[in-house]
C-alpha cells in the first residue's frame, strides 16, 4: 500500500461505497420476495395452529386484525397481545372464534427464564385457553379457567392479564 495524498483516497472510498450500494440493491431485489413470503408463511403457521381448518388469511394493517378463512368463510379473528413478563415483553397471538370463545393462544416471542417462566410457551399451559369463554380468562384462584404454573407466577399472570386486556379492547369488532 502506498501513501497517497489528495483526492484519490476519497475517490476510492466513494467508489467502494458505490459498489457496495449496487451490490446491496441487487441482493435486496433477489431476496425481497422470499423474505415477504417467509414472513407470511410464519404467520400462516401460527394462525393455522389456532384455526386448524384455515386455508387463507387476511390482515388489516389499520386495526392489526388477522381474519382466517376456510373456503372463503371467516373463522373468527386473531390479533397480537403484548404484555410485560419476568424478563421482558411477551408477544402473544390470540385467536377468537365467532361465537366469542377463545381459539387458543400462541406465544410468538418471550424472554422468560428457561424451565421456569418459559413454560408459558408449552402446550400444557397454552391449551388451557382453548375453548374458554371470554369472561373466564382469569387464573383459577380468581374464579377463572386458567391454572397457574408453580414458580412461574409473574409470567403466567402477565400472559393472562395481557390476553384479557387485548380481548376486551377488541370486543367492539364483534358488534
Amino acid at each position: 500500500m502506498t501513501q497517497k495524498n489528495g483526492f484519490l483516497p476519497v475517490l476510492f472510498l466513494t467508489a467502494v461505497v458505490f459498489v457496495s450500494v449496487v451490490a446491496l440493491i441487487a441482493t435486496d431485489a433477489i431476496t425481497r420476495e422470499p423474505i415477504a413470503a417467509a414472513r407470511r408463511a410464519a404467520i400462516y403457521r401460527r394462525l393455522q395452529s389456532l384455526f386448524p381448518t384455515m386455508d387463507d388469511f387476511a390482515y388489516d394493517e389499520e386495526s392489526g386484525l388477522y381474519t382466517p378463512f376456510s373456503e372463503g368463510d371467516p373463522l373468527g379473528l386473531a390479533f397480537m397481545a403484548y404484555t410485560r413478563g419476568f424478563g421482558g415483553t411477551i408477544a402473544i397471538l390470540v385467536g377468537l372464534a365467532a361465537d366469542r370463545t377463545l381459539r387458543g393462544i400462541e406465544i410468538v416471542s418471550h424472554r422468560e427464564t428457561p424451565g421456569l417462566g418459559a413454560r408459558i410457551a408449552e402446550p400444557a399451559f397454552r391449551d388451557l385457553f382453548i375453548g374458554i369463554e371470554i369472561d373466564d380468562i382469569a387464573l383459577s384462584r380468581d374464579g377463572g379457567a386458567i391454572d397457574g404454573i408453580t414458580a412461574a407466577t409473574i409470567s403466567v399472570e402477565a400472559v393472562v392479564e395481557g390476553v384479557r386486556e387485548a380481548v376486551s379492547a377488541r370486543l367492539k369488532h364483534f358488534e
Binding site: 497517497k4 495524498n5 476510492f12 472510498l13 457496495s20
Partner: peptide, 21 residues
Amino acid sequence: QIPDRVRIPVFIVIIATLVTI
C-alpha cells in the same frame, strides 16, 4: 489499490456489505 489513509473505512464498508448480504 486501497489507499492507506482510508483503508479502515474501506474495510468496514466491505465487511458491512457482506454481512448485509
